[in-house]
Nucleic acid binder design. Structure first.
Length: 469
RNA sequence: GGCGACGUAGCCAAGCGGUAAGGCAGGGGUCUGCAAAACCCCCAUCGCCGGUUCAAAUCCGGCCGUCGCCUCCA
């Protein structure tokens, strides 16, 4: 078996064959930076990070580019409201976003191009399109001529005539065709503008990604991705521009992730039903979000509720249980052999699932089987190389999904201040147990529990942790 | 109105023609002074109605319901 990917363009799952053997280029459409990013953005970033990690795991050299839209109507409006400079505002949210990505354990891209720094490439491309008859000027604007592009609509499955019926597009009588979209917008007073052969202005939304992608990754990328809300019009228009410009297929595989749903609706800035990444991370770990997302399939919507997050947290605790140290000293024998075989099976199952269009849910099922095998082995007294190898495999495969399986931050925080006092109480309780003073010992444990400290007695002695609020 | 996706146990969710993965929650047991954790066991015929097939959750048709896109959006 080898990797297969669902391609939005063909609506089929296809064998993955990159242009250059062993090398993969990925371009993922990044956010427009004008407000705090929410966990829907995080979901897209996490999904494509997982795709990337798996490709690397399979030995590909991956060149990963994701952009920032830092020139845009919404940025300008927001900046005006706050009396700030648009680019300064965009830079602020872009660096915030980069911080979020780090916190979510998303690997950094090789490059984060920004519209404001790619103007030469953008205007050159528009000029090229105009020369080929795919674009026309209109009162300082430049539009793409959709009727000139014979296969326009192939990604989203919309025919040009159909798109017109029942559409809510404001008819702009000046345009040749209602579906024509702006490549360049002439400058209006008070707006940031760049000089160009068409006069001062700024790029339309779609052209930037085409230009940056062509500039940094060449005429044909292997994987071009983003949220499924970008299929139309954004990616449809990217294809139209890019292929009209180069005469070549723009992207080999189009991948689109499903939306995060809050209260049964897509989470979005315009609907206002959002949880920001900061809000989420104040109460939960990055692992919890990554696991919640990986539990489903990337093309389907993810249901976000207090209950599904809580479930993810508990599942995570179970995954971590596989990492606890061995207790016995049986390095060989039947139980050890059983564990060794389980590791082989789990790895094969994990790869088989991931090869099938990144079936992370199946991959996680394999992880849980490994956890059970490890815990079972530990209970059976297994230790030594096989036990270590099993745990190492768990770490490694979890890592492909971007899961770190670190103990909760709350416990780490306790190490600073409360640790000596808690240890003191735990020791006193230990003495009480020695003296068979069960009632007092239980009182200490119950009191600690009430304060959020959970105490467990294990063969290796007591262990405690602080529950996150 | 057009294009598309989806409906699997209390919840989340794989499977996509050969007789239902996994997790959470729940029940029983082992261990434990008692717990907790861990381990063992139990817990669904797949929205509804027809059809194709030796065989369907999986294919086809109809119906009901949910969601996304068609406007900025990951």
């Amino acid at each position: 078996m080898a990797l297969r990917i669902y391609n939005t363009l063909t609506r089929q799952t296809e064998a993955f064959v990159p242009h250059q053997p062993g090398q993969v280029t990925m371009y993922i459409c990044g956010p427009t930076v004008y407000a705090d990013a929410h966990i829907g953005h995080a979901m897209a970033a996490i999904i494509f990070d997982t795709v990337r990690r798996y490709l690397v795991y399979q030995g590909y050299a991956v060149h990963f580019v994701t952009n920032f839209t830092d020139v845009d109507d919404k940025i300008i409006r927001r900046a005006r409201e706050q009396g700030r400079d648009p680019l300064e505002l965009a830079n602020h949210y872009a660096s915030e976003y980069l911080r979020h990505l780090r916190e979510l354990n998303v690997l950094p891209a090789d490059l984060y191009p920004r519209v404001s720094q790619e103007m030469a490439w953008i205007t050159a491309m528009i000029l090229g399109l105009e020369e080929k008859g795919y674009a026309y000027r209109l009162d300082g604007d430049v539009y793409f001529r959709v009727t000139r592009d014979e296969d326009y609509g192939k990604l989203s499955g919309r025919r040009l005539q159909e798109a017109l019926a029942g559409t809510r597009i404001e008819e702009d009588a000046r345009k040749e065709h209602p579906g024509d979209f702006a490549l360049w917008k002439g400058a209006k007073p008070g707006e940031p503008a760049w000089e160009s052969p068409f006069g001062a202005g700024r790029p339309g939304w779609h052209i930037e990604c085409s230009a940056m992608c062509l500039h940094h990754l060449g005429e044909a990328v292997d994987i071009h991705g983003g949220g499924n809300d970008l299929i139309f019009p954004h990616h449809e228009n990217e294809i139209a521009q890019s292929e009209s410009y180069t005469g070549k297929a723009f992207a080999r595989y189009w991948m689109h992730n499903g939306m995060l749903q809050l209260a049964g609706e897509k989470m979005s800035k315009s609907l206002g039903n959002l949880v920001t990444i900061d809000q989420f991370l104040r109460e939960h770990s990055a692992d919890a979000l990554r696991l919640l997302i990986a539990t489903g399939h990337y093309r389907k919507p993810v249901v976000y509720t207090a209950e599904t997050v809580e479930s993810a947290e508990r599942s995570l605790a179970r995954l971590r249980s596989g990492l606890r140290p061995a207790q016995g000293r049986e390095s060989t024998g039947e139980a050890a052999e059983k564990l060794r075989l389980a590791v082989e099976e789990v790895r094969a199952g994990f790869i088989e699932a991931m090869d099938d269009d990144f079936n992370t849910a199946g991959a996680i099922a394999a992880l849980f089987e490994l956890v059970r095998a490890i815990n079972s082995g530990r209970a059976g007294g297994v230790s030594g190389p096989f036990f270590q190898a099993a745990q190492q495999t768990l770490r490694e495969l979890a890592g492909v999904l971007g899961l770190q399986l670190a103990e909760p931050a709350a416990e780490a925080a306790a190490e600073v201040a409360a640790r000596p006092f808690i240890d003191l109480l735990v020791n006193v309780r230990g003495d009480l147990r020695q003296a068979r003073q069960w009632a007092l010992a239980d009182k200490v444990r119950d009191s600690l529990k009430a304060l959020g400290v959970t105490l467990e007695d294990t063969p290796a002695g007591p262990r405690w942790k602080i529950e996150a609020e």
